[in-house]
Design a protein around this nucleic acid. Structure first.
Lengths: 327, 327
DNA sequence: GTTGATAATGTAAAGGATTACATGTTTGTA
DNA sequence: TACAAACATGTAATCCTTTACATTATCAAC
């Protein structure tokens, strides 16, 4: 495979000139440019990014840390990231941590070893201490989930307000007994969404029933079924569910269908995220729409800005309540 | 950031020795090894993969070409690929082509420019001519969808047989009028699955009704709804649907639910792929399970084998008929 | 036809590792 | 004690670009 030297020789110029034709074509005479381009074509030359990256001390790769690609919530974010990255000549290294610290370390090593120029972390279970440490030296952005006491820049939505609006919607429909399917409150978003849930209840003078608050350890379909079974076994059942994840809500829906409980008549359900699938269920799922794609593009732009030494400010994007058939 | 020279100086050895400590620790004296490791620690040295990759003429990155990450079918394959890759110290560059030739070219360029060591293509709409051309020079594997007349190695399942079994299952249940939701027959898998569909019908002496064969241009939910509407508008409706993709089948299911047609009593539905979601619908979806994860691991192993100059043989993996509620 | 300014090109160092080959050190044995 | 064999370490080339700096070519103006 030809390298820049051979091209230079064939074109009768120096390697510097070849490089210039490639990188700043305007500083070179049309005649030499033509000669060089001719040689490039004849030799089928493709500049090696390995050499270039070494020289430029960059990899033009962005690490995207995701807890799981099975959760469609992340898919649209990833699409947004990929688009922004491509637009700026970056590529993404998609890394699924599975909340496994060992894997996480493998991926962190990629940036330590210069194989990635920066990180977008979306993993709520990320080792925040390591992340903080890394952020002193490398460009890092948190997307969706973030840590308050780090000063790692983030992009997210107002989770408290979104949850508040969701629950308020249920209350307005006449529900007084509303369950909350939440995840572990060690995660900020879980705490914030619970805050919103409680604020809505309080505002309308409704009691907070601890039995109605279910903590699931994973945001997936099975946990949704599990949680639903638990509330359905209560003597005093709620009439509505606010779930912090569409996947949990889909599980709830399934369990309702299985046991013949009518949605929304006997049980209203509202999810969170607006994953593509929430529109395919029976009935379709009312949910809080997060601007996933935009979360992605903004995160990527912030990261690239930071990689290039720029300053970057935290961003809160808008959410939206999508009322569909399940409420 | 420290480099290998500084480590060597600090440890009082040559760079070669430092490199050896890193790459073949056993050829170096325990005493020197200790000195070097000490220096590494003190300087917080991390070997740069940029330098190493240039020297070794490799990137240790595998390109994974997917038509769309919105289709969960690919998600498990990707997981498999990622696991195998990690096990062998590779990472994956996930590339969503969106069946957009320009994007595809960007990604192909990555391998031309040595930024990726090989490609796993899963895109049925891939530009097969370019792929064939590239495969002369670079390591390429096709996963799931492949081209018969190229000699690019592939891993897939027996689509004809799988379709045959699915349709036979419907026939055994008493269905005589069976619709086929297929994608464009320019794709091999579409042709093969249609073959299987026809073989089953023929074997049982059932007529082939062209009106029952619907071609969709995309394998997604909306196309499923669309196709369903078409067959429901026929004077003579089928009593069962065989869909070549779960997503289409989910669309069909939704449309049945919307219009109050009972599944499976009035309309049986069978999908293809066994995406995670097919188990979450109401009713759950009978489907052909492809061994997605395994497709991924096998593809990755084949590719890495090929990257390292090995020879590789085509692989056909087993599928399975999963009978659930929709039939 | 000089001169000076400007534009185009060339030279060589640098970026950070790996490794063939050369050199220096230990061992074991006679 | 001396010598060869085996082992450990060092030297320097190499992978492929980019770019600061040096050099040469071009052109206008006098």
């Amino acid at each position: 495979m030809a390298n820049i030297n051979e091209v230079a020789k064939k074109a009768g110029v120096s390697v510097a000139t070849v490089s210039r034709v490639l990188n700043s074509p305007n500083v070179v005479t049309p005649r030499t440019k033509a000669k060089v381009e001719d040689a490039i074509k004849k030799l089928n030359y493709e500049p090696s990014m390995l050499g270039r990256n070494l020289r430029n001390s960059e990899s033009r790769l962005l690490l995207v840390l995701v807890p799981s690609i099975s959760n469609p919530f992340y898919i649209d974010i990833i699409k947004g990231i990929e688009q922004s990255a491509l637009d700026q000549n970056y590529n993404i290294l998609l890394c699924e941590t599975d909340s496994n610290p060992e894997r996480e370390e493998i991926y962190f090593d990629l940036v330590r070893k210069k194989m990635a120029d920066g990180i977008i972390s979306m993993d709520p279970a990320v080792n925040i201490e390591t992340l903080k440490e890394l952020s002193k030296q490398y460009a890092i952005i948190q997307c969706s989930e973030y840590s308050e006491e780090s000063d790692i820049p983030y992009v997210t939505i107002d989770n408290e307000e979104a949850a508040y609006r969701a629950v308020k919607h249920l209350i307005k429909l006449g529900h007084q007994e509303i369950a909350l399917f939440n995840s572990n409150e060690k995660y900020l978003y879980a705490r914030e969404r619970k805050e919103g849930y409680m604020r809505a209840l309080q505002e309308y003078g409704l009691p907070i029933n601890d039995e109605f608050i279910i903590m699931t350890d994973q945001l997936n379909f099975d946990s949704g079924i599990e949680a639903t079974k638990r509330i359905m076994n209560l003597k005093d059942r709620p009439t509505a569910i606010f779930s912090v994840s569409d996947l949990l809500a889909v599980g709830a829906l399934k369990e309702m269908n299985r046991t013949g409980v009518k949605v929304p008549e006997e049980m209203a359900i509202i999810g969170f995220d607006n994953i593509e699938f929430s529109n395919m269920t029976y009935p379709t799922l009312t949910t809080i729409a997060q601007p996933m794609y935009q979360l992605g593009t903004v995160a990527a732009n912030m990261l690239i800005e930071k990689v290039n030494g720029g300053e970057v400010t935290n961003t809160i994007l808008n959410h939206e309540l999508l009322i569909r058939e399940s409420t």
